[in-house]
Write a protein that binds this DNA or RNA. Structure first.
Lengths: 135, 135, 135, 135
DNA sequence: GTGGTCTAGACCACC
DNA sequence: GTGGTCTAGACCACG
């Protein structure tokens, strides 16, 4: 499981860790029952403070994505994949709502917003297909 | 110039003020050279902290949308409209593109994304109309 | 709202804070909409680290007992009382289950456990009534 | 001497081992002077870490339930039965009293507490019987 | 003033 | 080795 952190992008580091672990679970990069890197190991590889990793893992526990085997570390919980897939969608939906609210508040007309959206969607899909073919 | 604030929508209040002033300029609600409400007046109208208005006005100065006339308060600067119109569209459009890319990357189908978008748009417009009627 | 902490009783300090805030809400010591002490203030009165209070408040947010008014502090959320009352009962029920499991595992007969339980219950109720009359 | 371990019930594994050894002594499953399984043997039987067994045996030595015979392993000490019988009841009874006091203080009715207790007791006994049959 | 995040370093229980 | 808790002190965004 490879995790990449950008400490300057506004999103809290612990939140970035949470998202990437969930993404890895949703994409079957790690399977239920498999261990995830220990707090100290993850902290070392990301060059961040163990407490920050601890906080990310705490949230993943609350979200029932991972569970603790006492004294032996943490593993992906059995229902994790389902949770991660659905949470990912709800997160994206929330983001869409936020952006749309901003657009409306800033005075754009519905048709104008819709046009920007459709343009973004078609170009994003083209790029997505292209990168699919590469891999 | 009518400004509506939602203290619970996650967007900082000062940022909401900035956006709506820019919106008013872009829509010719206020014209270059015309004064904008004083910090105190705006704060009283919106029932928010004067510091918050101060901060919004500071950012508007940095963005060259308003300027201080010594002893006479603040007015919309001459180049303001051009700045506001272009910045509004580019900012919102960029945000939309970012979100759409995330949605596609997270594996959502185009129809699914479009559905979330339309739902967000209609609910956002309803709330916008409702707050218009209140005022 | 008075909170008492015992740093040596095994229960984490942040957990003690969580419980006592919930207890205060359940007992109407603080009402929905009312503010709770700020992180710094609570930390000072309890003579503990602000981070520890922060963690307690974070959990209370997750449990939807309190909510943040940006820049102005935290208040008891509207549905808090219901949550606190029911959570209190479920916590006690869990504790009972744990103890009973231990008793069974340690080889006590059902009748023996039941006898100890009834004895404890009647003496606890007597003491409870007595303290009620005092107040 | 049969020992059953549940690694997921919150009680430390070494503590579970301690309790069950004491239980076996109290119930005359093993008699004073008789040897108890070696650390390695016990660890293999329970599929747990030898360090964990070591820790349990260390505590049993501190509690004067077992003693080391140089070169011949560990045996149940002479006063063990008396210690185990009395400690078992007093520990469990104390725990029950504590929990019941908490329940009463938290405002639960006597009948409510009794109901939770009986439910816990019957489910705990069922699980206990089930694990007996397995072995 | 408020809460939110992060770092550094310590101590503990458990396996 | 593992995770869990706590302290101390710093910086940031927001009102």
């Amino acid at each position: 499981m490879q995790v990449m952190i950008d400490p300057d992008n506004g999103v809290p580091i612990y939140e970035q860790v949470v998202r990437q672990v969930k993404y890895a679970v949703a994409e079957n990069v790690v399977l239920p029952g498999q261990p995830i890197p220990s707090v100290r190991e993850m902290a070392k590889t990301l060059a961040i403070n163990p407490n920050t990793v601890q906080r990310a893992y705490l949230q993943l526990q609350n979200d029932q994505v991972i569970e603790v085997l006492r004294g032996r570390g943490m593993v992906v919980s059995s229902g994790a994949k389902k949770i991660c897939v659905s949470s990912r969608k709800s997160v994206v939906t929330n983001r869409i709502e936020t952006v749309v609210v901003e657009a409306v508040q800033s005075g754009m007309e519905a048709e104008e917003i819709r046009h920007a959206f459709e343009a973004a969607l078609s170009s994003a899909r083209q790029r997505d297909k292209a990168s699919d073919q590469e891999s």
